[in-house]
């Protein structure tokens, strides 16, 4: 491997990591501002102009908080659990394409870190690892509320993983590939028939994806693992300081990642008007679509009350899973009729 290529990979990886962590900081501000507006409040506006320094203030506060480890906790797993939760969220975006090939300083640079032929499966594989962090946090705390939260989250995440995985099958079938670049390009390079295939039937897949992914990242209205009224704070009740901040970070980075996946797989990713002429528009389009989806996630949180746990499981298995299977069936029939 030539040295320039290694540098290219390193710079791209660093950029993705910095983007996600920076995005996490300002997503917290974005959420608080939007929630405040939806509830006719003002929201944080004291730290810096329009509250723009609020994430910095929050970060400083969390760093200086005291770190407590319960006496009866399993020390090793208690410390490892937040790390296991954050890392999958950080490595999923490696396969998400930001744009086409761009010329930077006379060098052809593709705007993605890795275009592997099993991209979609990589996403499901890594996200299935993320469950362990929450389960282990609940168990190692040696606290009954934490254990309940951990058990709930593992049951919930396994149940909704099925619908999530099946919702990916539609785009994979229509694009005839598991690589994310191929899926994005298939959404753009379609004629009239392709337009019908993608826009008439995939909205069902998109809605299934959206619901299942909200459950997968434990966001309201599916935030049973940390239901305050029943479990105080669920799996992270014993965590404080930076370890708590890592769980917090994982949740918000997962929000960004899920929005990026949704934008890439269902909303055309980096495609948009004039992206052929100016390739730098690709990342801009991807960002705009991601922010729209993030707004949707915050909006849902502000609107809907929390599900009851048995309703949540019944909804996942009896409604969402059959719908996802129906969507796979429709996509398969369309692929046979119109050709892949």
């Amino acid at each position: 491997m030539e040295p320039a290529l290694i540098w290219e990979y390193l710079i791209k990886s660093a950029f993705i990591l910095l983007f996600l962590t920076g995005g996490f900081a300002y997503l917290t501000l974005f959420e608080r501002k939007v929630l405040a507006r939806l509830q006719t409040r003002v929201g944080p506006n004291r730290a810096g102009p329009m509250g723009l320094l609020q994430p910095v203030a929050d970060g400083i506060k969390l760093i200086f908080k005291e770190e407590l480890i319960p006496d009866k906790a399993n020390k090793l797993l208690f410390i490892l659990a937040p790390v296991i939760t954050v890392i999958p969220a950080l490595i999923i975006p490696a396969v998400i394409p930001w744009g086409r090939v761009m010329t930077i300083f006379g060098r052809q640079v593709p705007l993605y870190l890795a275009d592997i032929n099993v991209g979609m499966l990589y996403i499901t594989a890594v996200s299935s690892i993320a469950v362990y962090g929450i389960v282990l946090a609940g168990w190692s705390s040696n606290n009954k509320y934490a254990l309940m939260g951990g058990l709930r989250s593992s049951a919930q995440m396994i149940s909704y993983e099925l619908a999530l995985g099946l919702s990916f099958v539609g785009p994979i079938l229509l694009a005839g590939s598991m690589g994310l670049v191929d899926i994005v390009e298939a959404q753009g390079a379609a004629g009239f028939l392709g337009w019908i295939k993608w826009n008439l039937f995939q909205p069902l897949g998109f809605i299934i994806f959206l619901i299942a992914s909200i459950a997968e990242i434990n966001r309201s209205p599916f935030d049973m693992p940390e239901a305050e009224q029943e479990l105080t704070a669920g799996y992270h009740v014993e965590y404080s300081g930076m370890k708590f901040a890592l769980f917090f970070m994982a949740e918000y980075i997962k929000m960004i990642v899920v929005s990026m996946i949704g934008a890439t797989v269902f909303l055309g990713g980096y495609l948009g008007p004039f992206v052929d002429k100016w390739p730098w528009l690709g990342p801009v389009y991807l960002m705009v679509k991601t922010v729209v989806l993030l707004f949707l996630l915050v909006w849902v949180r502000a609107t809907l009350p929390r599900f009851r746990y048995d309703r949540l499981m019944a909804f996942g298995w009896k409604v969402l899973l059959p719908l996802a299977l129906l969507n796979v069936f429709i996509a398969a029939v369309l692929t046979v009729i119109f050709g892949g």
Binding site: L121, T124, A125, V126, S128, I129, V131, Y132, V135, G138, W139, L147, G150, L151, S154, A155, M157, I158, E161
Partner: peptide
Amino acid sequence: AQVTVYAGAIMVLFLFVIM
């Protein structure tokens, strides 16, 4: 597939039952 099925799904169920 190995990671998704074995490390992801089956072992989560194992841990779930143990806990």
